[in-house]
Each structure stands twice: as structure tokens, then as C-alpha cells.
Design a protein around this nucleic acid. Structure first.
Length: 260
DNA sequence: CCAGACGTTGTT
DNA sequence: GTCTGG
DNA sequence: CCAGACGTTGTT
DNA sequence: GTCTGG
């Protein structure tokens, strides 16, 4: 599964890689704020994060309102085609369905199985209308070694500092926005660590996944195609210190390799 | 019809 | 909100 | 995911 | 043991 991760990229880097506008930046732009205010709003976003835990607020990339006004305001999106805007929003990790009585319900909905999410009451509406991407630099898995649990960090094999996890988001009482991370079967690398892994989407699938005019993968064949785990060669896994165990520790030590 | 659930993981 | 169970 | 709490009463 | 919080 995926119950903890890191996002070490800067706010600007996230905008660049995902061809998106930070939500606070769009709001400031609407108000006619200057470059200084824009820089300040980006600085207010707490990055980097080395130990993101469920219930915490983190950046999520979603489709923006696809209005001509929004397109005009954005200087981006031209090279991607489709013309849709992308927004980076801060959301709570742990999806709180719109019908929930208590937002604490989201504490357990931090993952959704891609094989079953389309038909689950908690996720079906988000599957159709709330698909998103979760930018991460590393995700953590705890490998069982006898009675011990060895924390492992998994990151892109190359120099890439960002991976995009497939996610779903929903809005609760017009205020709280929250998201969940889709999981799938593990690839050859992750199989030795855990029996599930997050669903990682390659850049060529981002637009389709975010397309608000599409209601998501449908039918067994399409679902299977979207559910395939990332290839082993994309990722690198290594042992890290138990520093990462406590969500209170949010330091570079969390992603630092150790001898297992 | 209304009432009640709605989720994942891991472990046994 | 929407589905299942009684 | 792991860490940490897990209860009531009354008083300040 | 099991639930809540981060």
C-alpha cells in the first residue's frame, strides 16, 4: 500500500513538471496581486516534506475549471494540447466522501484499490469526476523481516525528482478537500517488500487521467490497462532509518539510505 | 418501503 | 449520494 | 503507514 | 486489543 511518502520538490518545480498553476497563485492573479505576493503565497506552502502522513495537507494536481477565461489567464498548457488548465491544490490525505457525517472517516480511506474503486460507494463519484495526480519524490513501505519492520524508501531510478501517483479527490461540505491514493498489485521490485504498491502514472497518461470530460477507465479491459504497476526499471528501493516511523520526524534523515 | 452501510491494510 | 439488506 | 491513547468527576 | 490522530 502507500501510507507515507515524501515530496522534496519545490512549489515552482511542481508547477513546471505538471504544467500547472498553484491555486493560491491563480487566486492572487485574479486579485491582481504582484510578483511579491505570488512568491509569498508559494513560500507559504510547506515544502519540502520528508514524511507526509495521512490527515496532513499536501499538494495535489487536478483539472481546473476549463473556461476560456482560465485558459487566457494561463500562459501554460499550449504545448500539451487539449487546452485544459491544471491546478495544484493543498488537500487533506484521506478521502472524506461528500456524504460523510464525520471527517474522521477519511482517516482510513487513505488508499483505494484500483481494481474495485469504481464501484465502491466512497470512491465512485470521485472516480468519475475527481481524478487527480499526487506529486511525490519517495514513498515508504515497511518490509516485514521476521518480527522486525524495515522501512524502505522507493524513488525514481533516474534523476527525476517527481513521480505522479494516481489519486481521487472529493469535497466535503464545500470546505474540506481531501484525496486518496490508488493502489495496485506490486511489480517485481516491490513484490519482495509488500503486496501492494501505489499506482504510478507516466507523463503520457496525465492528461487523459485528469480529463474532466472523461468518466475514467471503464470496463475490465480498460481498467486492467490502467491498473498495470510501473515497471521495475522505473524505480529504486533502499532501506532507511526508523526515523521515518514517527510522523513527528520530518527531516532529510527520513530519505537517507542506511545499511539494512 | 426505510435503515444502515459506505474502506484499506494486515493478521489470525 | 447511492447501494444493499431486511 | 506508525505512534499513542485508551476515563470520569470536579475544580481552577 | 483496538481506535484515533498525524
Amino acid at each position: 500500500m502507500c501510507g507515507r511518502y515524501a515530496i522534496t520538490a519545490t512549489a515552482e518545480r511542481i508547477e513546471q513538471v505538471f504544467d500547472a498553476l498553484w491555486e493560491t497563485a491563480s487566486i492572487d492573479a485574479e486579485r491582481g496581486a504582484g510578483a511579491a505576493a505570488l512568491a509569498a503565497s508559494l513560500a507559504a506552502v510547506t515544502l519540502p516534506r520528508f514524511n507526509v502522513a495521512p490527515t496532513q495537507m499536501c499538494p495535489v494536481v487536478r483539472a481546473g475549471a476549463d473556461t476560456s477565461e482560465a485558459r487566457d489567464r494561463s500562459t501554460k498548457g499550449g504545448g500539451r494540447g487539449g487546452g485544459e488548465t491544471r491546478i495544484v491544490s493543498m488537500m487533506r490525505w484521506g478521502l472524506v466522501p461528500s456524504w460523510a457525517d464525520d471527517p474522521a472517516i477519511g482517516n482510513r480511506l487513505i488508499n483505494a484499490r484500483v481494481e474495485t474503486a469504481p464501484s465502491k460507494p466512497s470512491f465512485r463519484s470521485a472516480w468519475k469526476k475527481g481524478r487527480c495526480l499526487v506529486p511525490i519524490s519517495h514513498f515508504y513501505e515497511w518490509k516485514k523481516e521476521g518480527s522486525r519492520k524495515q522501512p524502505m524508501a522507493i524513488r525514481a531510478a533516474g534523476e527525476d525528482d517527481l513521480l505522479a501517483l494516481a489519486g481521487l479527490w472529493d469535497s466535503w461540505r464545500d470546505g474540506l478537500r481531501s484525496f486518496t491514493i490508488l493502489t495496485t498489485e506490486p511489480n517485481e521490485l516491490l513484490r519482495s517488500i509488500h503486496d501492494r504498491m501505489p499506482l504510478i502514472l507516466p507523463p503520457e497518461r496525465w492528461s487523459r487521467w485528469l480529463d474532466p470530460g472523461w468518466s475514467g477507465p471503464d470496463g475490465a479491459e480498460e481498467l486492467a490497462e490502467w491498473s498495470k504497476p510501473a515497471p521495475k526499471s522505473l524505480l529504486r528501493a533502499y532501506a532507511v532509518a526508523t526515523t521515518v516511523n514517527s510522523p513527528r520526524n520530518d527531516s532529510p534523515e527520513c530519505v537517507a539510505p542506511v545499511v539494512a
